[in-house]
Simulated assay, not measured.
Amino acid sequence: MESTSVANAGEALFRPVRTGNAFEETVERLLQAIRLGVVGAGERLPSERELAERLGVSRVTLREAIRALADAGYVESRRGRYGGTFVNENLPAPGQSVGSRPVGAVALEDALSLRHVLETGAAEMAASRSLTPADRQHLTSTLAEASAAELADYRRKDSRLHLAIAEVTASGSLTTAMADARTRVNQLLDRIPLLEPNLEHSNAQHEEIVDAILAGDPVAARRAMAEHIEGTASLLRAFL
């Protein structure tokens, strides 16, 4: 029988996620539960039905999150009467890639805070401007390239789209600051796995952001960008 403290921790971690980034936040909640020992090494996660209900997500989303964690080496699925999803005995080191040092919480939050301020501001400013035909073409072409990018090239095409948003603000200083902030974020992203459900979701969010900018709707552009980068932040906090 689990202790009261563990039960309370489980209630806190397995609470409903926000709908905007359901997959990313589900990954984050499950990894938090594993890292904090709410579900210990060798122990079984709550049933798929129970987890889906407690997190407020579809079973499809939950399965995608569990599959991502299995591919990353955190859990394994077992069949049979006593089957389910079990936490692996030996877990990957958080935020550790070959030849690198672990990422500190302060450094991570600093990079994410800077990104949030710059990128939401850039999206809002871009949507506030009267864009030239060249600006519009720049956004639509980089969006198309990111949407069609192969997995191995996705990070570069994704970065190019985000920089394009800064470029159409016509602020050289903002573009330079965005480039520096994006370099920091990419160094963090290189430490975590590329998850196809997240990339599909990101592509849909990219389209929403660009549509809002082209429509001249600063509020919608800022809101869409904030939701988009929060999904990435959830994954970085989870894995790092």
Rank of each mutant, 00 (worst) to 15 (best):
S130K: 13
R191K: 15
S5V: 11
F86W: 10
L163Q: 11
E227H: 02
V168N: 02
R63P: 10
L13N: 02
E89Y: 03
R191M: 12
L199K: 02
L114W: 02
D190I: 02
A149P: 11
A152D: 14
G216C: 10
A111S: 13
D211A: 15
L45H: 03
D180M: 12
G231S: 11
D110H: 08
L151K: 11
R101D: 10
S130E: 15
G99N: 06
T232A: 15
L139Y: 02
R44Y: 01
A22P: 01
S97R: 13
A105G: 08
R81M: 11
G10Q: 04
A127F: 02
T140P: 06
R29C: 05
A41C: 12
R237D: 09
V87G: 01
R59T: 15
A68S: 14
R222E: 10
A170C: 09
L189G: 08
V6H: 02
A127N: 05
R136M: 10
R15A: 15
A215Y: 00
T169K: 07
T175A: 15
A68K: 04
G42F: 03
V210Q: 01
S77G: 14
A127M: 06
K157T: 09
G84W: 03
R115I: 08
R182T: 14
Y82R: 13
R160S: 14
S3L: 10
A148Y: 04
D135P: 08
R78D: 08
L131M: 06
E11A: 10
P16C: 10
H138N: 11
I209N: 01
L188C: 09
E76F: 12
N8M: 12
T19E: 15
L143A: 09
A111Y: 00
L108P: 06
H206Y: 09
D71F: 05
R182I: 09
H206A: 08
A126D: 10
E145N: 11
A221D: 02
T142K: 02
H162S: 04
L235W: 00
G216H: 06
S130I: 13
